[in-house]
Amino acid sequence: MSRVRTLEADDVPAVAAMFQRLLRKKAPPPPTSLTDYIRRLYLEAPFCGGGVHSLVHENGEGKVSGFIGVHALPMTFNGRKLRAAVCGSLMSEDRERDPLAGARLLKAFLDGPQDLSFSETANETSARLWTRSRGTALTQYSLDWVRVIRPVSFALGVASRRIRIAKVFDPLASVVDNIWRRHLGPGRLSWSALPTSGTGQKAANVREIDSIQFADLLDPLTSQYALRPDWKECRLDWILADAMDKPDLGDLVFCAVSSPTGVRIGAFAYYAKPGGIGSVLQIVAAPGQAGHVIDCLVDDAAARGLGGLRGRVQPALLEAMLGRRIAFVHAASTVVHSRDADLLLATTDSQAFLNGIAGEQWCRLIRGRFT
């Protein structure tokens, strides 16, 4: 008889093999680095335990046939401490023999002791399972934003994810992009590219900082949210160290943004690889300052030679992004579940700080390298 139980150390090789097959779309066996990382992330990390566990599904033969990866996230709601659980990988095989394995895993997870459950990487199948389990899909948190800086480099960056040889055209792309951008007038808004003069907005100053300084800015710059991570309890040192170990995405750059008078108004963290598409991990901004912070991010990426930027939307940033030639796409849904109506209202009313560091985008299972 099939059952759901807590992940144990002996299950990790089977989970890694499943991850390799179903999510990485590669033939097993998985590399040792992937197996070791799954063990470290779901069994040994500082946010493991405390009643919040990753789970496996066993089929009738006692074989691991499904998995849901979970880590705890300390949060506060109007000053009240609570515990959230972030759902990462949700996968099951033998769907023809046992089509309800995924649903059993999700139900067991949602029945856990956490006050709030959420995921920011739910595909269409997972999102349907969440909503059928009385979860809610948050439209305003479920969009990716895209800004083109160098159009030819951007196109090659997209193509190179499928066709590696496309990168040989990078030198030619740089020449064409420079000509294209010079023909755009200073400060001109264009969907196709960013002028060589940048956004034209000089109302703020940018300074590169380290991960410790960035972590110190998260609490004051998210204080306006009713529901947010308890940054002092989140082990940001562990999370940011993990986030920095994604060499294929480039260096993880941390920057602080200040007004001309020196008042700190925002910060951002993004992966920068010249000629590539920068992946934005997090943007934080003081109320009313999101536009200035976004402009500084785009200008900083242009100065580092990036072809474009892509990141996850926060509702507080959405209004500022409109009119800045930023496009939006839907790749995955942010979904939430709670038995506390006030917590749910905070998420649906855009009063929650979710996604990015307050989620799972920092995790190496998302676009990390395992060889």
Rank of each mutant, 00 (worst) to 15 (best):
L34A: 04
L34E: 07
R39C: 02
R83E: 11
G62V: 10
I68M: 05
K81W: 02
V56H: 07
R40C: 01
C48R: 14
G49F: 04
A72V: 02
R83Q: 14
A84V: 04
E58S: 07
N59D: 15
R40V: 01
V64H: 09
G79F: 08
G50A: 08
K63I: 14
G50Y: 10
I68N: 11
F47E: 14
V64N: 08
G62T: 11
R80L: 10
I38C: 03
V52P: 02
G60R: 13
V56Q: 06
E61A: 14
R80V: 11
A84H: 07
K63L: 11
F67L: 01
E61F: 09
R39F: 02
R83P: 00
V70C: 07
I68H: 04
V56G: 04
E58K: 05
N78M: 08
E61W: 09
D36S: 13
G51S: 03
L41W: 10
V70E: 09
E44P: 01
P46G: 12
Y37T: 02
P74W: 10
T76C: 08
K63E: 15
V64G: 07
I68T: 12
G66I: 05
K63M: 10
A84Y: 07
M75E: 02
L41I: 10
V70W: 00
P46Q: 12
R40F: 04
F47I: 04
V70A: 01
R40Q: 14
S65P: 00
A84W: 06
L34T: 07
V64S: 06
E44V: 05
K81I: 02
K63V: 14
M75H: 05
L82V: 03
H53M: 00
C48T: 15
G51M: 02
L43N: 05
P74R: 10
A84E: 02
L73H: 10
S65G: 12
G62S: 11
S54D: 01
G66S: 07
R83L: 14
G66F: 05
G51Q: 06
Y37S: 01
H57P: 01
G50D: 08
F67D: 02
H71I: 03
G51Y: 05
T35Q: 14
T35E: 15
R80F: 06
L73K: 11
P46D: 11
G49C: 02
V70K: 02
H57K: 07
V70Y: 00
G62P: 11
R40I: 00
G49N: 13
F47G: 09
N59W: 09
A84D: 03
